[in-house]
Design a protein around this nucleic acid. Structure first.
Lengths: 271, 271
DNA sequence: TCAGACCATGTGGTCCGACCACAGTAGCAG
DNA sequence: CTGCTACTGTGGTCGGACCACATGGTCTGA
């Protein structure tokens, strides 16, 4: 069975493209348990020889798996090199959603509405959960509050000016907070989809944030709303948590995206 | 213009792998509106020359886009050949989730839960909508009822009298019904995500359906539940609609997926 | 003996050239 | 005008070649 030099010998079922053969094989190994998260895939050359296809085809399949977030590749040698089955799903869904939004020009309002639906469910789930672990989310909130003089070693290199965090830093933490809630709810699927949706409108959010009359005021309100959401969860008030995060997202996008109204590609690339 | 062999001319920023450059470029064209659904991408050779990368790298990027369900490729010549931006967002999400499930990245229960969240929101939205257009969904329900005592060549070894539709036919219509509800709610993003999630567990559903003691009974119950959901929407009872579709999905998967695969409760790890 | 430089090895990343199968299309022959 | 054929362009595949990189062993000098 190691004789795989000629396709006619080892491939009774061709089933279309060569890279699909590779993909199918890897999926089969995944399902059967031969391959597990953390395992190394055989080298590209070995895989090609084993399956009787060219290395190019193997690479195309590997590329597909990589964008799906299933594997991670690394050049060089050593235990970290090669293609490794990724344990935690991350990124793939985000890329997918972002590209589909880009391709279909899905209305931003629909994306926002979907976020509301998902995040409402997340906080409601957390509020009705026995002992939700909000520590990660709360840590992020603390980081968003943190004045640079707080002694946190993470703020060592940051200039201790009046504005504690830049817009980008704040928005990154904000994104992480929302994601942390989803993760805390234990549903990786929702977390992944949420991440993708957020990514897909990220550009609009950041541009919109630039044109706010007062970013500091906005940040303050967001901080307060975040705390209120967590408080509602901790108070086991699912309905209140739903309402608060719904309005939180509503206002957030109303004041950023709507700020520069038409989504029209204003182009104007700086360079 | 054809001599763009040197990357320094057209690529001031290298940004890692060559195929990522291609991916980024296509995404940018998608976002900016240069590329729209239905459009043809430039040929692989042309794209390679334009971006100053090898054709292999272009192909890897195209492969990524293809598994993501963003493009469709076709050999030969003519208007249908080449890489075309796909109009309907279908397949990509299904592949992603299926593989992640296979790699133990996603729990099937999480996929099901996410469906419940999204579909509950959909029916609630429809129930509170002024004049929801359920005609498409109802047509599908009628088709599921339809007893085409003959003609259905798919019912080869099935009892031709009692079982009107084969399992596959029924499940296809079922999928279409759920999707029709999402489309009727007007949120394409939710519809797209829902479709992908449903597709991704389709395999498990079909296998599970094989082992049911009585498919006819199951089909009857599903039909009744579908009608009940529509009735709740038409009665403008959002809460009832939510409850009904939630339980509908619950039972559906409880009797199929759980039938052959003991799924560990995600929220309650044994400890 | 030990530390550092050095090279052999194996990995993915990339490019290139070649060939194939396929599907239209233009052109020719009838 | 009709029908067939050859051409053209597309993606699909393959094999080889080279690169950059990281590791691990070996060699050399102090």
């Amino acid at each position: 069975m190691s004789e795989a030099s000629v396709a006619t010998l080892a491939a009774p079922v061709d089933s279309g493209r060569a890279w699909e053969v590779v993909l199918r094989r890897i999926e089969a190994d995944l399902v059967s348990g031969v391959l597990r998260p953390g395992d190394h895939l055989p080298g590209e050359r070995a895989l090609a020889a084993e399956l009787g296809v060219g290395r190019s085809s193997v690479r195309e399949a590997l590329r597909a798996l990589e964008v799906l977030g299933l594997i991670r590749t690394q050049s060089g040698s050593g235990p970290q090199s090669g293609a490794i089955i990724v344990a935690r799903p991350s990124g793939g869904m985000a890329v997918l959603v972002r590209l589909q939004v880009a391709a279909h020009g899905f209305a931003v309002t629909d994306v926002v509405k979907t976020r509301q639906v998902l995040e409402s469910a997340v906080v409601a789930e957390l509020a009705t959960s026995a002992s939700p672990d909000l520590s990660a989310a709360i840590e992020l909130l603390d980081a968003m509050d943190a004045p640079p003089a707080a002694g946190s070693d993470a703020a060592l290199d940051r200039a201790p000016d009046a504005a504690a965090l830049s817009r980008d830093e704040f928005l990154t933490l904000d994104q992480a907070f929302h994601l942390a809630l989803a993760v805390a709810s234990g549903n990786e699927v929702i977390a992944s989809v949420m991440g993708g949706l957020r990514d897909s409108v990220e550009h609009y959010v950041r541009v919109g944030a630039e044109s706010l009359p007062s970013w500091a005021a906005m940040a303050d309100r967001l901080r307060a709303e975040h705390r209120a959401i967590v408080a509602a969860i901790e108070a086991r008030d699912a309905d209140l948590a739903r309402t608060r995060i719904h309005e939180h997202i509503d206002r957030y996008h109303a004041e950023t995206i709507a700020a520069f109204a038409p989504i029209a590609p204003s182009a104007a690339p700086p360079d």
